[in-house]
Nucleic acid binder design. Sequence first.
RNA 1: GUGACCGUAGCUCAGGCGGUUAGAGCGCCAGGUUGUGGCCCUGGAGGUCGGGGGUUCAAGUCCCCUCGGUCACCCCA
Length: 409
Amino acid sequence: MISRLKGTDDILPPDSRRWRALFRAFYRLSELYGYDLALLPVIEATELFSRGVGEATEVVEKQMYTFEDRGGRSVTLRPELTAGMVRAFVEAGALGTMKLAAEGPMFRYEQPQKGRRRQFYQVDFEYLGEASPDADVEVIELSHRFLEEVGVEGITLKVNSIGDSADRLAYRLILQEFLRSREADLSPEARRRIDSNPLRVLDSKADVEAVADAPVPIDHLGEAARAHFGAVCAGLDAVGIPYEVEGRLVRGLDYYNRTVFELFSSSFEAAQSALGGGGRYDPLAGLIGSKKEVPAVGVALGCDRIVEAMPDPGGRRLDLFVAVVDADRRDEARRWLGQLRSAGLRVEWDPVPGRSLRGQFKSADRSGAGAVAIVGDEWSEGEVTVKRFGTGEGERLQIEEVASWLLGR
RNA sequence: GUGACCGUAGCUCAGGCGGUUAGAGCGCCAGGUUGUGGCCCUGGAGGUCGGGGGUUCAAGUCCCCUCGGUCACCCCA
């Protein structure tokens, strides 16, 4: 028997009930906030990520599913969504702003553990072409709202600003000098990063003590970035979303500037506790070769982890199960099923003709239906016998009355 | 990439110091009961004991390798 690949999952009931609730909330909120749907390729040119996400990042260095296709091109299964979203926006020749929502699988080649799979799912909101800090606030508010909406408990938000490119260049030198002065206390990995990616050292768990008093980007912001961050914080205050400013929050991808943020839930003690994160990424379009500048801000939320923190949506999966006593009446019953479904009722029946009524009741009970309707002799008088599970005896109803009887309470 | 623990039926697990035909509960199917589900009773299907190699008269049990799972490191969603 051939089985699943390592780090991949089959998401089936009952777990998939929570996934369905999650995607419902995603589609509902996208519409409420005016984010249109984007469906993008799962496979992209490798360069999109090596240039966009950054050559020296963990993701690009060792986590990508990269291979040569039959035409000899180097292609990669997307490890994240943002680079593709910007690519699509620029490639469409889009002018002005565009608000896009996307969802789907991402791929990273890693050792699986709790909250970390090789194929995982994200929902994603991107506010493209907008430089205003109000876009940052909206994206953060929407992320927070989404987590609340699906029932995640104990949400916390951390925000930071890593400044503009020029700010970071200057800050980078200051940080590198600090790190060299502490080189003896740093982990080997951190030492390697002093030159390649010094900011990453700030949130390395192995080096928390060594960098406790390190200079942080937020104290070295330029005028524009400082004003921008002030406006973002003021906006969050105005909508009443609590947050912490975390100076050592830097995120793992190279394309960010100014605002960065991450969302957590208190229901996770474990290592993989970030449910989502994002930020502003004005430089990204340039990194992937766009002549046009695209200021933008976005967020990605990890569905697998969110689902872990979600309560079961509960409720029944069916409204009615139709039991047919006499197989001769199945075609009439079949038409009736169609009518009930058109009325918005969730209805099933037994796929095998001629099973005993007792057998059909057993199926009905297991199907999760709230009630049964018996199509029997009374059908010829335009009636069926209906019965709710868990309560008393059945009653006879006119066929037309059944829908309102079900919806009645 | 590193480390720890774990792989026996669909699921949860039992199998004493290596010994005869590998078991239980739940679930599933059928029947008891062809106009009434749950409870009960009877019967049934379902196993390369993760895979490969080795030791042995004999391996689910001991040894080695490998694959997979879980968790942690690392990193991130």
